[in-house]
Computed example of a mutant assay.
Amino acid sequence: MSTTPTSINKTALGHLVAAQLGVSQRDGVRAVDAVLEVITRSITGGIGVAVSNFGAFVPVQRTARARRNPQTGGTVLVPARQEVRFRVSPRLRETVQAADPAVATIRKNPKSA
């Protein structure tokens, strides 16, 4: 009986990339690591990262604000912080809604001649 995973970790993603590209599993994992490192450094520096037909990682600065502690009823100051949001592209949203993994791709359609 075969079970379908509900999620894929970074190593498994690297192995899938390696199979797609026809390279070693080690190179696939290194490629995934490199892409994630560039995305992380960009977002940390306040620069958003957009991937066509996939989505965008957008850094968001949250301001400091006062909130109420539900246990004591007292006011607590929540400090300012930087967060990251992910905005799904319309193409990826449509692909996921189609729910057909056999034809799921975010590659651009070829231009007509």
Score class of each variant (00 low, 15 high):
101 P>R: 07
10 K>L: 02
109 N>P: 03
31 A>L: 12
47 I>T: 14
56 A>H: 06
91 R>L: 02
24 S>P: 07
2 S>Q: 14
97 Q>T: 12
84 V>N: 06
2 S>M: 09
68 R>M: 07
85 R>S: 07
20 Q>N: 09
48 G>A: 07
52 S>P: 00
87 R>P: 00
83 E>Q: 10
36 L>A: 08
18 A>P: 12
50 A>E: 15
68 R>P: 05
109 N>M: 08
47 I>H: 12
32 V>A: 09
35 V>C: 06
94 E>F: 00
42 S>H: 08
31 A>N: 06
21 L>S: 06
55 G>A: 10
67 R>D: 01
63 T>H: 05
39 I>Q: 02
111 K>E: 05
18 A>M: 08
98 A>S: 03
113 A>S: 08
71 Q>E: 10
15 H>P: 01
103 V>T: 15
51 V>Y: 00
6 T>E: 06
44 T>D: 10
17 V>K: 03
42 S>T: 06
107 R>Y: 06
64 A>Y: 01
5 P>M: 12
3 T>D: 10
109 N>Q: 13
10 K>D: 00
28 G>I: 00
22 G>H: 05
65 R>I: 11
99 A>E: 01
73 G>F: 07
65 R>K: 15
85 R>L: 02
59 P>A: 11
44 T>C: 01
6 T>S: 11
61 Q>T: 11
103 V>H: 15
74 G>F: 04
21 L>P: 05
18 A>K: 08
13 L>F: 10
110 P>A: 09
79 P>I: 03
15 H>G: 08
18 A>L: 07
58 V>A: 05
113 A>C: 01
60 V>Q: 11
93 R>A: 15
32 V>C: 08
28 G>N: 09
108 K>A: 13
7 S>W: 12
33 D>M: 04
28 G>F: 03
41 R>Y: 05
46 G>A: 02
66 A>H: 13
5 P>G: 10
79 P>W: 06
81 R>V: 02
112 S>G: 15
21 L>N: 04
70 P>N: 05
106 I>R: 03
56 A>D: 04
10 K>Q: 09
1 M>I: 07
83 E>C: 10
62 R>I: 00
4 T>G: 00
48 G>L: 04
75 T>P: 07
68 R>L: 03
83 E>K: 09
23 V>L: 06
35 V>L: 13
27 D>E: 15
76 V>S: 08
41 R>I: 02
20 Q>R: 15
49 V>G: 04
113 A>Q: 04
37 E>M: 05
52 S>V: 14
28 G>A: 05
53 N>M: 00
95 T>L: 08
